[in-house]
Simulated scan of single mutants.
Amino acid sequence: MTRPVVVGIDDIEHSARAVAAGAREARLRGAPLWLAHAYHWIPPVVAGVMPGGDTPEGAVRDAATALLAQAVARTHAEFPDLDIHDYAMSGHPGPCLADLAQDAALLVVGGRGRGGFTGLLLGSTALSTVAHTRCPVLVVRGGPDTETGTETGTETEIDIETEAPSDPPATTNRVLVGADVLPPATGPDVISFAFEEAALHASDLRAVHAWEDPGYLYPVAIGGYPSVTLDQLNAECQRRLDALLDPWREKYPDTYVETQVLAGPPSKLLVDSTRTADLLVIGALRHPSGKGVHLGGLGHALLHHSQCPVVIVPEG
């Protein structure tokens, strides 16, 4: 059975782009599309029932079911060829979505939800989902043509009647993968996912390794590396990066691969690189328990400031 693509839905307005992205990924993979919404309710101080004899939890569940039915209908209209299923789950979104998608090919969430504030760079649901994920998770955010408005982090209203969510944003036809060549080096799960995405989208692949030059941090104390030494260090990193990618270059001979080694602050250099990419792929170490990942400082910086959608791939 082909593994599904799962999309977490907040509401129709704020989830349109995530649903469209998930539908495109499902169509490329020939996979079923699962639309999921997690709901939770707070019991009333005084026990009672809703009009008509329903319970408060039942009313919330019915509203969630109606929301999903509307999302399924809209998605079928845009992608009539897809096999679409819907799931209403009781609980907090992050853990619920991660549990449902534990064996999925991809879990998709929006970068912002209905509860965000103006200037908020990433929603709490997206962060929670990433923290609990056991499969690759795509956070749909970044760039001028997203739910955050004309500038990253600026909230605007979206007219869902005039929006065309099935149309992808303007593309650069490039998948970007952040690769670490120093121990612990980026693992095969991350590299394999990046090559697969590039092949599915008929895109080029750029692999970037950014390393911190101590002279950049402490120029007064030690000064920068001499240019000859810096060239040698860059050449060694380049050799390791090529060795890391070689097995997948052979497996995907039709994918054009570009590599780049940069010396300086990794978070800034990688964020800058996302301005000319359609997708960024990075890894995150799995927790020893196998449930969820540890998203370090670099991962947080990229999720908050990337100018394109980001995929977090569990590894290790």
Rank of each mutant, 00 (worst) to 15 (best):
A202R: 11
T186A: 00
A210D: 09
I160W: 00
A207I: 04
V208Y: 00
I158L: 09
S124F: 06
T118E: 10
N234W: 09
E157D: 15
L205D: 01
V177L: 02
T172N: 13
D242Y: 04
P183M: 00
A198G: 03
D167N: 15
L233V: 14
P183H: 04
Q238H: 12
T133S: 09
S227H: 13
G142R: 10
P184D: 12
L230K: 10
L230P: 05
D159A: 08
R134V: 09
E157V: 15
Y225D: 14
E147C: 09
F193L: 14
A243S: 09
C237W: 05
F117E: 02
T125S: 01
A243K: 05
P165M: 01
G153A: 02
D242T: 12
L245Y: 06
A207L: 05
L200D: 02
H209N: 08
P168K: 12
Y216S: 14
T146K: 06
S124D: 10
P144Y: 05
E196S: 14
G115K: 13
L241T: 07
R141F: 02
A199M: 08
V130D: 03
I158G: 06
S124Y: 11
S192F: 03
E151T: 14
P168D: 08
A164R: 15
T133R: 05
A194S: 08
R240A: 04
E157R: 15
P169V: 10
T162N: 12
T129N: 01
I191K: 01
E151C: 03
V181H: 07
C237G: 08
P188T: 12
A185E: 14
G116E: 08
